[in-house]
Design a protein around this nucleic acid. Structure first.
Lengths: 151, 151
DNA sequence: TATTGTTATACTCTATAACTATA
DNA sequence: TATAGTTATAGAGTATAACAATA
C-alpha cells in the first residue's frame, strides 16, 4: 500500500541548533563521497592519509605516523601492511636502531598520491560547490579552531 | 631510553589542504567530548538525537525516525529499546494500523532532554570557545550547505 | 626500564538480509 | 504486494592489552 495520508514533515530543529549535529551531517556526507572517490584507486581514507603523511615526512616511523594520524600503533601496522603490499611504500631500516622502520613512499606511491590528490580535489569541488572559494577558506579556518580547551 | 635527538616536527600540510581533513579532525574532537558529556546522563549520541527528534515529532513511527536520523530501521529498534527501557519514551499504538508504533517522550524523557540540552550547550560553548558567536553562526550555516550535488 | 612493532581480542557503530505481522 | 518492526549477522574502524626484540 502506497502512502496516501498527508505526510506531516519530520523536523529536527532540536538538533539543528547544535553545531555538532550540522558538523556530523556534513562530515558523514563528505566521508561517504570520499570513500567512493578513493575506492577505484585502491585506497581507504586512512591509507590515503597515511600515504600523505609518509610522503610529507620521509623515513617516518610507525609510532610517529600513529601520532600524526591520531590512531594507535596497532592500527598503523595494518595500514602500513596494506600500503606495502600495494608497493606504495617501503619499510626501510634505520641504522642505529633496529626497532623502528623508516617508511618511505615508492615511485608508485608518489604517483598514486598525485592521482589521489587530484581525485580528492575534484571530490571537494563537488561537495563544496554550494560554497564560494572564500567561504571554503573560512570554513577550513573555522574548523581548525575547533578544540576542547586545555584544562 | 628517553628521546634525545632533536625531534623533527611531523607535518600534515598534504592533508590540511583539504577541507574534509579539517572537518574530520574537528568532528572527532567534538564527538569524543560530546560522548563524555552525555555519558553521565546515560545517553549516547544516537539516543540523544533520537530523543530530540521524538520530542519534536510526537507519535513518530520507528521508520520515520530512521529516516530522520539517517540510519536503518534495524538500528532504530535497538535505540528505541534503549530509550524505552530507561523510561524516557513510550511505544504507543496507532489506531487503524497495528503495524507501527507511535513514539512519545515520557515526562522523564522531557526532563532528560532539557538536562541534556543544557549539558550539550555547555559542551559546545567549550568546544567553540575559540570562535566568536558570529563565527559559530557562520560555521553552522556553511556546514549546512555541504552536500553532494544531485546528479 | 622504556620503546617499537606486533598480535589477538573486543567494542562501537552501522548496514544487509531474512523473517513476522499486518495492511 | 508493500510496509513496520524485528532479529541475526557481518563489516568497518578503532582501542586495549599482552608480547618479543631492541634500546
Amino acid at each position: 500500500m502506497k502512502k496516501e495520508c498527508a505526510a506531516k514533515e519530520i523536523t529536527d530543529e532540536n538538533l539543528r541548533q547544535f553545531v555538532g549535529y550540522n558538523m556530523k551531517r556534513a562530515f558523514l556526507n563528505v566521508r561517504a563521497d570520499l570513500a567512493d572517490t578513493l575506492e577505484p584507486l585502491g585506497l581507504r581514507m586512512t591509507s590515503f592519509s597515511a600515504l600523505a603523511v609518509i610522503i610529507e615526512n620521509p623515513d617516518i616511523s610507525q609510532s610517529r605516523l600513529a601520532e600524526a594520524l591520531r590512531i594507535e600503533r596497532s592500527g598503523v601496522v595494518v595500514l602500513v601492511d596494506e600500503l606495502e603490499s600495494a608497493d606504495l611504500i617501503s619499510r626501510g631500516r634505520v641504522e642505529g636502531d633496529r626497532r623502528q622502520y623508516a617508511l618511505r613512499a615508492t615511485k608508485a606511491g608518489m604517483a598514486k598520491w598525485k592521482e589521489a590528490e587530484t581525485a580528492v580535489n575534484a571530490h571537494e569541488a563537488a561537495m563544496f560547490s554550494k560554497l564560494t572559494e572564500a567561504e571554503v577558506t573560512v570554513l577550513k579556518e573555522l574548523l581548525r579552531r575547533v578544540r576542547r580547551p586545555e584544562a
